[in-house]
C-alpha cells in the first residue's frame, strides 16, 4: 500500500494524502481545519481491507501523521507554546489533563443538547419580528407667529431661475464647414483660419477646426502655423511649397 496515495474524504479536504501534505506545507490549507483522526480512521480502514500487515506503510504513515499532529498542535497553541515549554513535565501533564477534561465536558454538553433537540423536535412556534412599538407623539415647542411667518417667507421666496442655456447648444455638422472651405479654396489658393471664422461662436469655430483636420487628413489642404497661437494658415495642396518662403517671411513680419 502506498501511503501517499491514500484517498481521503474529510470535511476540509478530499483527495490523496500527498496532495493534502503539499497543500498544508504550502500553507494553502489550514491544518486547524483538518480532522487528523479522520485520516487515521481512513488509513486503518484501508489497512483492514488487506490480509497482511504492511509494516512499511504503517511506519511511513506514523511518521507523516506524527508530523501533521505536531504542526497542528503548534498552530493551535501558538501563544502558549513558550508558556507550556517552561512547565515541568508533571505540570504540563496536569495542564493537558485539565484541557482534556474541559473539552470532554463540552462534548458531553453537546450530547445533552443533541438529545434535547431530538426531544423538542415537535416544537412549532411563531418566529417573526414583533410589530413596531408605537412612536411617542412629539410635542412642538411654542412659537411666535411672526417668527414662523418670517421663516415661511424665506421658504416661499422664488428660487433663481435655472439656466437652460446649455440645452440650446447646437453643433453644426462638420460637413457644412468642409463644403465651405472647399468652396473658399476653389476661389483662393489659401486663407487665414481666424480671419475667415472670426465672427462665429466658440462651438462653431471648434467644428470648423474639425472640418479643417478632416480636409488635412484627405490631403486636400496643408496647414501651417508660425508659432503657438499665431494665425493658422490654410492652403490648397500644391500651392503651399511654391510660396512657402515668401509667406513665412510675410507671417513673421505680421506676428512681429
Amino acid at each position: 500500500m502506498i501511503v501517499r496515495e491514500l484517498e481521503l474524504d474529510l470535511d476540509a479536504f478530499e483527495g490523496p494524502f500527498d496532495l493534502l501534505l503539499t497543500l498544508v506545507l504550502k500553507e494553502e490549507l489550514d491544518l486547524a481545519d483538518v480532522d487528523v483522526a479522520g485520516i487515521v480512521v481512513r488509513f486503518l480502514e484501508r489497512l483492514g481491507e488487506r490480509e497482511e500487515l504492511d509494516l512499511d506503510a504503517c511506519g511511513e504513515f506514523l511518521v507523516l501523521v506524527a508530523a501533521l499532529l505536531e504542526l497542528k498542535a503548534r498552530g493551535l497553541f501558538e501563544d502558549e507554546a513558550a508558556e507550556l515549554a517552561d512547565l515541568e513535565p508533571e505540570e504540563a501533564a496536569e495542564e493537558l489533563a485539565r484541557r482534556l477534561a474541559e473539552y470532554r465536558r463540552m462534548k458531553e454538553a453537546g450530547g445533552w443538547l443533541a438529545e434535547r433537540l431530538a426531544e423538542e423536535r415537535d416544537r412549532f412556534f411563531r418566529i417573526g419580528p414583533a410589530p413596531l412599538a408605537p412612536q411617542p407623539e412629539r410635542k412642538l415647542a411654542p412659537q411666535e407667529p411672526e417668527q414662523l411667518a418670517e421663516v415661511i417667507r424665506l421658504l416661499a421666496k422664488e428660487p433663481p431661475a435655472v439656466s437652460l442655456s446649455h440645452m440650446a447648444l447646437r453643433f453644426p455638422p462638420v460637413s457644412q464647414f468642409v463644403e465651405r472651405f472647399r468652396a473658399l479654396l476653389s476661389r483662393r489658393s489659401r486663407f487665414d483660419f481666424d480671419a475667415e471664422l472670426g465672427g462665429l461662436s466658440r462651438v462653431e469655430q471648434a467644428v470648423a477646426f474639425l472640418a479643417l483636420l478632416e480636409l488635412r487628413r484627405a490631403d486636400e489642404i496643408t496647414i501651417s502655423q508660425a508659432a503657438p497661437f499665431a494665425p493658422i494658415r490654410v492652403a490648397r495642396v500644391g500651392e503651399e511649397s511654391a510660396a512657402a518662403d515668401e509667406r513665412t517671411l510675410a507671417w513673421n513680419a505680421r506676428s512681429a
Partner: peptide
C-alpha cells in the same frame, strides 16, 4: 457533566 479524564491523566 462527565469531564472525567482520570485514565488519561
Amino acid at each position: 457533566l462527565a469531564g472525567d479524564v482520570d485514565d488519561l491523566r
